[in-house]
Computed example of a mutant assay.
Amino acid sequence: MPGLPLVQPEDATPEVARLLDAVQAMTGLTPNLAKAMANSPAVLRAYLEFAGALQRGGLSAADRERIALLVAQHNAADYGLSAHTYVGTKVAGLTEREAVRARRGGDAHPVLAFAAALLMRRGHITDEELRAAREGGLSDTHLAEIVAHVAFNVFSDYFTNAARVAIDWPLVHHTNLERTTIMQARMKNPAQILPGAMEPIFALFKAVKSGGVPETTLELVHLRVSQVNGCSACVDAGAKSARKAGETDERLFAVAAWRETSYFTDAERAALALAESATRLADRPDAVPDEIWEEAAGHYDEPGLASIIMMIAVTNLFNRLNATTRQIAGAW
């Protein structure tokens, strides 16, 4: 069924024509959204005044677009996704990846985290979420404006969905993402909550590198353990870290099937086999069989073995912290 008609500037009443001219002056064009809103001068005027006031607020253009993308994805509003993906990446300075992360709602950015909480709880945020926003550096002015931006974008998304506004931007469809619901961690990483927890974990990571094992081997171990445990945050961070350490994409892509590839040395294969066994302790009566241990011991001395085992243990710790609380890949 057809939605609301588009009011063309040349056919508009003097009042509506002035409002459409104001849209042109503000945005540099007259989008179909404004033409559909022009069916009611009151609606178009409210939209313009709301948008103009928020643009003069304290949030950056990039953060305003992040909120708009998050809300549009939540509302399955393809018009909003298309418009704000274009404006966000072409005008506000977001990268394509940042735009996608904003849509997923999995960014650790405090503005997005607070906006996502508002959406998911319909405004009924918890004391912890409010406290986290303030600890993340958001002022009361920022918090007020984030609420306003969420409401403003809900208004525009509902309007474009209900009015069936034709998309006049490069199309971005809400189903293009693997998941279309807002992704949000259940809580902060527990090691970030308990005082004094994170420092010794990082000290362990530092000690792991003192055993003489090549950094790339340790990164492969970290990545494979994280894959076995299904920890998306650690897989994402591990692949990036390994790449920084000099790993190639070919080897990183093949870690999950390392037995069937020729990319890895015998020493690396021994470390990966040990990593899998020491992670899957419940899979067999003899958790780490002698042949796996002896193969590893044939390539590494005791400090090297200690380094690999510690990397396996620390990675399993982080995997369990992240997977249990559903930490979001790319948020760290």
Rank of each mutant, 00 (worst) to 15 (best):
P289C: 10
N153V: 04
L220M: 15
H149Y: 12
V213P: 06
L317A: 09
M311S: 08
H173V: 15
R224C: 03
L274R: 09
A197W: 11
R134T: 10
V154F: 10
W293H: 14
G57R: 01
D21V: 01
T141Y: 09
A46W: 08
L81E: 02
P31E: 01
V288Q: 02
R326G: 00
V43D: 01
G88D: 07
S232F: 02
L223C: 14
L59Q: 08
V43C: 01
L252Q: 12
M37N: 04
L177A: 01
W258H: 12
E268C: 00
E128D: 14
S226P: 07
A278W: 00
T126K: 11
E129G: 08
T315R: 09
L119Y: 05
T85S: 14
R284M: 07
S232K: 05
V150C: 07
K244Q: 14
R224S: 07
Y47N: 10
A61L: 14
L70N: 00
I292Q: 11
A117Q: 04
A108G: 05
A197G: 01
I312G: 09
I182G: 03
I201E: 05
I309C: 12
A197M: 13
M1A: 15
D290S: 11
H222N: 12
Q192T: 10
R243N: 10
L94R: 02
E294I: 08
A197P: 00
T324N: 08
T324H: 00
R251D: 04
N319Q: 05
Q24Y: 04
A12I: 03
A162I: 01
F50A: 10
V255C: 03
S277D: 15
D157E: 05
I292L: 12
R134S: 11
A185K: 12
V165E: 13
E250A: 15
A237E: 12
R243W: 06
A233N: 11
V23N: 02
A267G: 06
A83W: 03
T265M: 11
L94Q: 06
H299W: 09
L223Y: 15
A257M: 14
I125E: 12
A42T: 10
G304T: 02
A25V: 09
H124A: 13
Q192H: 10
V87G: 01
A282G: 14
L48Q: 04
R134Q: 11
N229V: 08
V150R: 08
A275F: 00
R269T: 09
R101I: 09
D21F: 00
G105M: 09
K209R: 15
I309Y: 03
G93H: 08
S60Q: 07
A61F: 05
E15N: 06
V91D: 00
G304Q: 11
R284P: 01
A297P: 00
T160G: 03
M183F: 05
V208R: 03
I309V: 15
N153A: 05
A273N: 12
A185I: 05
A133E: 06
I308V: 11
A237R: 13
V225H: 04
G211A: 09
E260A: 14
A237V: 10
V147G: 14
V213R: 12
R66M: 15
E268K: 00
S262H: 13
R122L: 05
N75E: 14
R121G: 06
D168R: 10
A53W: 08
K240W: 12
E135L: 14
L20D: 02
N319S: 07
E96A: 13
H124T: 00
C231G: 03
P190N: 04
L317P: 01
T95L: 03
D286M: 14
D11A: 13
A151F: 06
P200E: 01
I67P: 12
L94I: 07
